[in-house]
Design a protein around this nucleic acid. Sequence first.
RNA 1: GCCUCCGUUGUGUAGUGGCCUAGCACGCCGCCCUCUCAAGGCGAAAACACCGGUUCGAAUCCGGUCGGAGGUGCCA
Length: 474
Amino acid sequence: MHLGGVRTALYAYLFAKQQGGQFILRIEDTDQVRLVPGATEVIYDTLREMGLNWDEGPDVGGPVGPYIQSQRRDTYLPYAKQLVQSGHAYYCFCTKEELDERRAACEARGETFKYDKHCLHLSPEEVQRRLDAGEPWVIRMNAPTEGESSYHDIVFGDMTFQNAEALDDMVLIKQDGMPTYNFANVIDDHLMGITHVMRGTEYLSSTPRYNFLYRALGWEIPQYIHLPPVMRDEHHKLSKRDGDAYYSDFIDKGYLKDALVNYLALVGWNPGNDREFFTLPELVEAFDVSRITKSPGIFDVKKLTWFNAEYIRRMSPEDYLAAVTPWFDKTLEGVKIDYVRLAQLMQDRTEIFSQVPDMVRFLKDMPDYDLELYTHKKMKTNPEISLQALDMLRPVLEGIPEADWLEQTIHDRLMAAIAERGMKNGQALWPLRIAISGLQSTPGGAVEIAYLLGKTRTLARLDQAAERLRSALA
RNA sequence: GCCUCCGUUGUGUAGUGGCCUAGCACGCCGCCCUCUCAAGGCGAAAACACCGGUUCGAAUCCGGUCGGAGGUGCCA
């Protein structure tokens, strides 16, 4: 599910719940050609996972079903016919090919194509004759060509359009008998008692068409709340091509759904104060349609990541352990490691779960590393000093019985030995950490890593490192 | 092209004529802490697109310019 759609659904849910209304899920699948198998399941799964539970919808039912437009196919035509009767619509027999040609010619001349009401002037007899003859047809709206239309949008305020410019004879019923979105949404919104329409700004300028239909049908026009787009950057909307546009993209990368929901709510809306952290119920409470932004919002992955890291830090150690274990397993499966301790060390360092495997891999396989790592200005180390330190620390570690291989013990013995020789902690511990991790930075220091590795692996890595240093220095 | 909308630091925003030498958060940079990296603490740099008007006074009102987005489908 696209994040733009996710946010629209989120706002609709927040508003509905806050107003004590019903949140209805309706599947708009009138374009049979573009149907994507499994797409509706993705919608169900995503919304449910986010906690946006719908009160009425395809699978849960409700008083105004069915909630899938393709299953409502027969409800639209009578209304279209009614509009034909009242003169607000008419049958059209122009073929798609003809229209495409005329549109192309028009555009080539730099003009805006508009259907010229060609078939509006067919006599009723002629229409009937062609209908009877089985000619393919569509039903078009008979749009007024003069005057102006206005409506009020809760976010954008008063909108006014010249009818001649904003309205055209759009198709209501397609050749395959399906309604267009333009028609179906009006019919269904009315039939389903929709009071507030929340959708993207791409509908801002087509709203006068819908209002024309509501009026022609004698129905009440709903309230409009148009939402600014969610952008990838200044110029582009989030799109599939970015590979970062879908809810599942982020969940798969190890973003927490609560963080995603929280952050998404803030792209295009703010509570009017400095508060940033909200649970779903808190959002329901705080949401205020009058504070929805008009300008497009850029989806900032950095800020999302910060939110995610913050949510991770706020997890209980137990929850974090449960969440991180599968990620540990990706690289540490089968290795004897104290996951509980590792989790403690990792929790503050986890921004996204997908980063975890790379961060802990060294515990399983000793990475290749450059001896340059032993040179650290601030720690005052170089390969020579490092080798001395390792040689000095070796017996200390060896002297710790397997059963006493605990962090506290390792720490105390090491510190005592270092102090005894009057060394700086870093001078001894930096080389040790490099020797047993091979990495410039690790979650935890030499003591923690030695503990996690266990005595055997620690000493083995230590010996190997000392060996390398010795031969390099010789 | 035409129509509509939008325009505050890199990003999200606060701000509705004086409280703004423009606040907050992320990010960036520096310092502290420290056996690394994080986390944490402290600090810094960074914006009212432009021009003109209205006004004693404008980020806030008006006009224009420029920039951006959306629409202009038998897609939604």
